[in-house]
């Protein structure tokens, strides 16, 4: 079993918690796991990516390369589009239908690509879109976007619902556990 999950978004969207939960789930199940993330300069509203590699064998490189991701979790549409080349043939995408304009677009120097969803549909094995921001807001915090997306993607990943709940209970701050459990459940239904 090898599962490569790429989590992409915009600096500040909370991509890191998603990878911590995934990593600890893998550890709990006795798999090998490596995660790789971006710190520093790119966190200031730049494009960010976290690599999660899980295997029942040894994980060597912590990086997922082009054509190698089984699942891409995208917190923003342009980032889903940018990282599409990393998706394995037939791989699945979970995309939050939110658009955040990068500064070159705001300044009129570049165009936000049209028909991103069309390109994703054409090339990915499956594209699952959801308005994770609205769902997270319903649950009580815009910050729960990450867990909503994880909920949605959870069915494609080798862990049971109970295992997901237990890792949320263990690694999320106590006062946010209920909110995140709800966000996870709603994402899983979406």
């Amino acid at each position: 079993m090898n599962t490569n999950i790429l989590i992409v978004g915009v600096g500040g969207q909370g991509t890191l918690l998603a990878s911590v939960l995934l990593g600890n789930l893998a550890l709990m199940k006795g798999y090998d796991v490596k995660l790789s993330e971006v710190h520093g300069m790119s966190q200031r509203g730049g494009s960010v990516v976290t690599h999660v590699k899980i295997s029942d064998d040894t994980v060597n490189s912590p990086l997922i390369e082009k054509g190698d991701a089984d699942v891409i979790l995208a917190f923003e549409e342009l980032e889903a589009y940018r990282w599409l080349p990393y998706l394995k043939k037939g791989g699945e995408m979970y995309v939050n239908t939110q658009q955040i304009m990068p500064m070159p677009v705001v300044l009129g120097q570049a165009k936000y690509p049209e028909d991103i969803m069309g390109t994703l549909e054409e090339n990915a094995g499956a594209v699952n879109t959801l308005d994770a921001l609205s769902i997270a807001t319903e649950c009580g915090s815009v910050k729960a976007v990450n867990v909503v997306l994880l909920g949605a993607a959870s069915k494609a990943l080798p862990f049971s619902e109970e295992e997901w709940i237990s890792v949320i209970e263990k690694f999320v701050k106590p006062k946010f556990v209920d909110l995140n459990k709800e966000a996870f459940a709603k994402g899983r239904e979406a």
């Binding site: 509203g45 342009l78 599409l84 990068p102 165009k111």
Partner: peptide
């Protein structure tokens, strides 16, 4: 993908 605009920090 060649036309994704950059997202500088």
């Amino acid at each position: 993908i060649t036309d994704a605009p950059g997202r500088p920090p």
